[in-house]
C-alpha cells in the first residue's frame, strides 16, 4: 500500500480544474510534480492538505480516506504543506514562526525543542536569525523558514509548493539538498517544481498539463525519458 493514493481526483473553483487525476506516492519517496503555469499543481497539493474540498475521487493517506478533512486535522494526521508564496508570519520572529509550527505538539516540550534543533541543523541560517522578524528575511531565508515551520509538526508527508521559485540556482540547489536530507530522515516528500534541477533528487516524477496527469514515472524512467524535450519545453536548468 502506498502512503498516498490519489484516485480520479476532481477539484475546481466553481469550474473544473483537476479533471480526474490518479497517482500514488510510496512511503519514503521524493516525488516531483511538474507542469506549466496554471496546470493545476497548486490545486493538487492544496487539496491533499485540506485547503480545498474535492468534487469527486478519493485521497487515501496511510490507507484512510482523507478527502474533505480540514487542514487543522490533516496536520495532526501527519500531512504538512509549505504553501505557494511561503506565507511566513511576517511580524513574528523566526523562533515564534517555528513555535506556531509546533502548535499541534505544543504540550510536548521536549519534542518541540528537539524539532527546533533539527530545523536549525537543516538550516543553520535560521538559527543565526532566530530573533529576526520573518518579514525582514530574504526570499531564500523565508523559504527555509516555511519548510522549517512545516517540519515542526513532525509530518510523515511534506508537500512543498514551488520550492525554488525566486531563488538563485545555487540557493535552489541548497534547498533541494536539504529536502533530500529531510527525505533521508524518513519524511515522504512531494515537491512542486518548474526547475528540472530537482530531478537528480527525485524518486518519482509527475507531470501535469491542463488539469490532467500526462506522465508518471519512477527511477531511471524519469532520467531517460527525455522529460525536458517532451513535456517541459526543453527549458534549461
Amino acid at each position: 500500500m502506498a502512503l498516498l493514493e490519489i484516485e480520479e481526483l476532481r477539484v475546481g473553483y466553481g469550474f473544473p480544474v483537476l479533471m480526474g487525476i490518479s497517482f500514488e506516492v510510496e512511503e519514503g519517496e521524493t516525488a516531483v510534480l511538474f507542469g506549466l503555469n496554471g496546470a493545476g499543481k497548486t490545486t493538487t497539493v492544496s487539496t491533499i492538505a485540506g485547503m480545498l474540498k474535492p468534487d469527486g475521487g478519493a485521497i487515501r493517506f496511510d490507507g484512510s480516506d482523507i478527502a474533505g478533512r480540514p487542514p487543522t486535522q490533516l496536520v495532526r494526521d501527519g500531512v504538512a504543506l509549505v504553501p505557494e508564496g511561503r506565507r511566513v508570519f511576517p511580524a513574528l520572529s523566526v523562533s515564534n514562526n517555528l513555535r506556531l509550527g509546533s502548535w499541534t505538539r505544543r504540550r510536548e516540550q521536549a519534542e518541540v525543542d528537539q524539532r527546533r534543533q533539527l530545523v536549525f541543523d537543516y538550516f543553520p541560517r535560521l538559527a543565526e536569525r532566530a530573533d529576526q522578524a520573518a518579514g525582514t528575511l530574504s526570499g531564500g531565508e523565508q523559504q527555509m523558514l516555511a519548510i522549517g515551520r512545516a517540519l515542526m509538526s513532525k509530518p510523515r508527508l511534506l508537500l512543498i509548493d514551488e520550492a525554488s521559485l525566486g531563488l538563485s540556482p545555487a540557493l535552489a540547489k541548497t534547498v533541494f539538498q536539504v529536502v533530500k536530507r529531510i527525505n533521508d530522515d524518513g519524511v515522504t516528500v512531494i515537491i512542486v517544481e518548474q526547475n528540472v534541477g530537482v530531478l537528480p533528487y527525485a524518486d518519482r516524477a509527475l507531470i501535469m498539463e491542463k488539469g490532467t496527469l500526462v506522465f508518471s514515472g519512477v527511477g531511471d524512467e524519469i532520467r531517460n525519458a527525455n522529460l525536458r524535450e517532451t513535456y517541459l519545453g526543453g527549458g534549461s536548468e
Binding site: 487542514p71 487543522t72 504553501p83 506565507r87 511566513v88 506556531l100 502548535w103 515551520r149 512545516a150 515542526m152
Partner: peptide, 19 residues
C-alpha cells in the same frame, strides 16, 4: 502569537493546525 499570526496569514495559521 497565534492571534497575531492569524491576523496576517490566516491560511498559514490553518496549515499549522490552528482554527
Amino acid at each position: 502569537l497565534a492571534i497575531i499570526g492569524a491576523s496576517q496569514e490566516p491560511t498559514a495559521t490553518e496549515l499549522v493546525g490552528i482554527s
